[in-house]
Design a protein around this nucleic acid. Sequence first.
RNA 1: GUUCCGGUAGCUCAGUAGGAUAGAGCAACAGCCUCCUAAGCUGUAGGUCAAGGGUUCGAAUCCCUUCCGGAACGCCA
Length: 545
Amino acid sequence: MQIDMMIKTLIETALKQAQLDTWPDIEIEVPNDTTNGDYATNIAMKLARVLRRAPLAIAESLVANMPDNPAFKHIEVARPGFINFYVDKRIYRDVIGEVLQAGADFGASTIGADRRVNIEFVSANPTGSLHIGHARGAAAGDALARIMQKAGFNVTREYYVNDGGNQINQLVRSIDVRYRQALGETITMPEDGYHGPEIIVLAKQLVADHGDRFLHEDGGEQFRQFGVNHLLAALRADLETFRVHFDVWFSEATLYENKTVEATIEQLKASGHTYEEEGALWLKTSHYGDEKDRVIVKSDGSYTYLLPDIAYHADKLSRGFEQLIDILGSDHHGYVPRLKAAIQMVGGGENALEVELLQMVKVLQNGEELKMSKRSGKAITLRDLIDEVGVDPIRYFFAMRSLNTHMELDLDLALKESNENPVFYAQYAHARIASILRNAAEKSLKPNLNRRQFETLQSDKALELLAVLVDYPLTVELAASKRLPHKITQYIQRLAQAFHTFYASETVISEDAEATEERLVMLHAVKTVMQNALELVGVEAKERM
RNA sequence: GUUCCGGUAGCUCAGUAGGAUAGAGCAACAGCCUCCUAAGCUGUAGGUCAAGGGUUCGAAUCCCUUCCGGAACGCCA
């Protein structure tokens, strides 16, 4: 049931009646004031410019030319030239059958056209624990992946493991320092080492397993493997707990092992995108919109970070992905133009890479900003957050904000578990419905879920609740195509509110058998949609609270 | 100095095709449990959309300038 399409058809019919053959895009909007109808269009005002006639007059004649349609109670013209449509909300009752028929697939669409999309997110270095910024990335990336999947994209979630570069050497040094400290040496961690407590744990384990062996022989390779494996395993475990599952864990080191990096250099050289200067190899990224050219091979022969990253993105393209999406922290925004430029040099289109930037999370505790410090290793980890707050509130909270908004996380508030936390509102709605359905079952009421006639659903509250259900598929499409996961949490709030309002205004299980059954069937549909929507942001739909 | 992001109700945030009287949640205030879960419902109050200028029938939205906050500007990653 696509009411906006019906309206479009009505308008087009009227335009043709008026002997017009071209017209501007027809916009259908939902007025924020319901006294201006359920839907409205500004087409008459847009035409006013072209036709040089008063918008009101144009609107009048369009309405006069529209064929009768029972879905609308009333179509009116309003100043300064809007056409307002008042829907006969009884047609919304059809959505119940659609939901129950589709079940978990209600809201699914094909606008993604099975396009192969690679979403890379988190990609934290295996040099410590995941902190709160990664948590935002994980929640946002996974929600986007779920939403796009639902909208018909063929999505792969990918994690790029930086196990090949300098930071791994730094990790080995840090483990070495902690190892020596564990064995009683007085040695201080360098400024740029990894100061997190997890490194100390690793070092103690190494001492337990190998004693002081590596004081006498080089432990570098042992430290590297042990460190990366354990830290990566911990990252993966934390993410799984957070209900984020990656399809691909891509190792940077394999880019060197498979000579992909060398091949990328050769390709860039052969295609004339490079030049040598001052002993370094430069890439002409400024030809593709970057503000200046960038070094990819330093004068000492080593590579900059950009080079393996180009090879990595080229690899993604070679695996057949039509759209690459990177979700990055906003501190990488300066890096985006050079990466986009480079991707075009290795065969990607201008829009092959799309970057979603996440702004920083500001953490408050006791009303004061909590500063993260790399030096002290003091940071709020994802694990701490999960243990103290729980997965549902964290995921919901991150999913509520648009990706590029600066956001604040008040730990005291998150810990409070009160109604200040909006996730409870939604979960409570779902649990309430579950409770009603349980009560009905106890009374041996078995609603016929194949019922398609709902004559008793007449009240404003019930019809309004159905109107929200009708909106769900469009909401998913919008969230997917515009990459706006927070549209889903907004929808969840709207659905929960419509339900709670309905619940407060009428009793579901009553003496009237027919009305009871119709309401129960409707609630099955509401529950299904609520569960579907919560699923898209990775939040559990609770049966009881 | 340059670039990017932000500035909207007391607080946290929506407003992503330029539309009508700028919204939600929380907090505040006033009500509502004999009744399927009160983590709920109903109502009230709350705004110079940072400031100024411009574009037009119409601007929180587009353009310019300024102010404030965050971030990035490396042959680091």
